[in-house]
């Protein structure tokens, strides 16, 4: 998806990274700037219904993560379970108090007034939650939400590629191909590779990206070859490097 929003956000990420390779911390700082929020936290899926804090920008963000872990409820927990964003634009409302009877008052006491939880997911691949908070009530504007979603996608890519053995540089691949949100063939190919290699969707997707990167080809083009059965991934070949076999 190469559109204005993507380049707008990536220009900002570049400013925050200042030439070094992009980290999750850079993405959090960028999110604070472009979405106009006071802090950000990233939590990762640690089990079927468990999240654990990965990084937070400040004590309030850390407290929001901790509260949800201890209380077992909150916007991030819901976002992860339901696979959708949860936009709690004012925790002081009756609706929020009813939805999260323990979390809402505790988060307010910690200094947060609005919490926006964006799932870090690519279809069935669930990585965690990107949580933004504000000390004042209020939702994100359309532009702020667009930018926050693009940053959440980028966090996904960064997490996946870091987890990969000899994985590609997320920054390089994202700059070249954009984010693979809209290309149906990429997701179809992920499903096919999952069966070919007998791995999880997450690993299959990482391998697909690694192959595209290693071959210096566009992700969508490689995925099209997989779907057309011109390219197969072979489990016996060099498992780390995402080797594919032209058929």
């Amino acid at each position: 998806m190469t559109n204005d929003g993507f380049f707008r956000v990536w220009t900002q990420i570049g400013k925050h990274a200042q030439g070094s390779s992009v980290s999750v911390a850079h993405l959090c700082a960028t999110a604070m700037a472009v979405a106009g929020v006071d802090g950000v936290g990233v939590s990762l899926v640690a089990g079927p219904e468990a999240l654990e804090a990965f990084t937070t920008t400040d004590v309030v963000a850390a407290r929001i993560e901790e509260l949800q872990l201890v209380l077992g409820e909150g916007p991030a927990a819901d976002a992860s379970a339901e696979g959708r964003p949860v936009l709690a634009v004012d925790l002081a409302t009756a609706a929020c108090a009813e939805r999260w009877p323990a979390f809402a008052p505790a988060a307010l006491a910690a200094g947060a007034r609005a919490v926006i939880a964006l799932p870090l997911q690519i279809g069935a691949i669930r990585l965690g939650v990107f949580t933004l908070y504000r000390v004042r009530p209020g939702g994100l504007s359309a532009l702020e939400l667009a930018d926050a979603l693009v940053i959440a996608d980028t966090v996904c890519m960064l997490l996946l590629d870091h987890a990969a053995v000899a994985g590609p540089d997320a920054t390089g691949l994202a700059w070249r191909d954009g984010l693979p949100g809209s290309d149906a063939v990429v997701h179809q190919a992920t499903g096919m590779i999952l069966v070919q290699l007998g791995v999880t969707a997450e690993v299959a997707f990482v391998r697909l990206r690694a192959y595209a990167y290693a071959q210096d080809r566009r992700l969508g083009d490689v995925a099209r070859d997989v779907v057309a059965r011109r390219l197969r991934f072979d489990p016996d070949q060099n498992p780390g490097a995402g080797v594919g076999e032209p058929v």
């Binding site: 279809g123 179809q188 499903g191 069966v195 779907v227």
Partner: peptide, 10 residues
């Protein structure tokens, strides 16, 4: 889309 890929390959 991911599930279609799984079924198509299987």
């Amino acid at each position: 889309e991911q599930a279609k890929g799984v079924i198509a390959e299987r």
